[in-house]
Amino acid sequence: MPEFAVPFHWRNFRKRYSLIGSRCPVCGRYFYPERHICPVCKRTVKIEEVMFSGKGKVFTYTVVRVPPEGFKIYAPYIVAIIELEEGAKITGQVVDCDPGEIKIGMPVEAVFRKIRSEHESGIVLYGTKFKPAK
């Protein structure tokens, strides 16, 4: 991937630093990330912004052993789809968990963590990861 200018990351800070999603006022479904149109109802109504609790459980997972550029030093690492308690799903890493311990159904909670840095003097990217819930 190219190295992007600062606004590429800056405009996403709010979304990366908190779990903002959408709720459809017609069907009541929740979505992450935010959307303008409910993909289920497909109606032209105003979608509501919601803040997720960050609690959920592992819906499916993998352990990435051959990473893309920028993730080499973290491999192997767990990436999972988390089913949030509100019903929406979200993709993110699961940390503080041994790759041998991860299981479908495992309760997790959101934590704020470093994702990667672009290079030695580049932008440090932060976002949401998940850890096993007590």
């Binding site: 990330p33 993998t62 976002g127």
Partner: peptide, 17 residues
């Protein structure tokens, strides 16, 4: 990009899901 690749997901990873 922003919601999958950003987190270090790869294509083998997607199909592993």
């Amino acid at each position: 990009q922003e919601n999958e690749a950003f987190h270090g997901l790869t294509f083998p990873g997607v199909y592993a899901f």
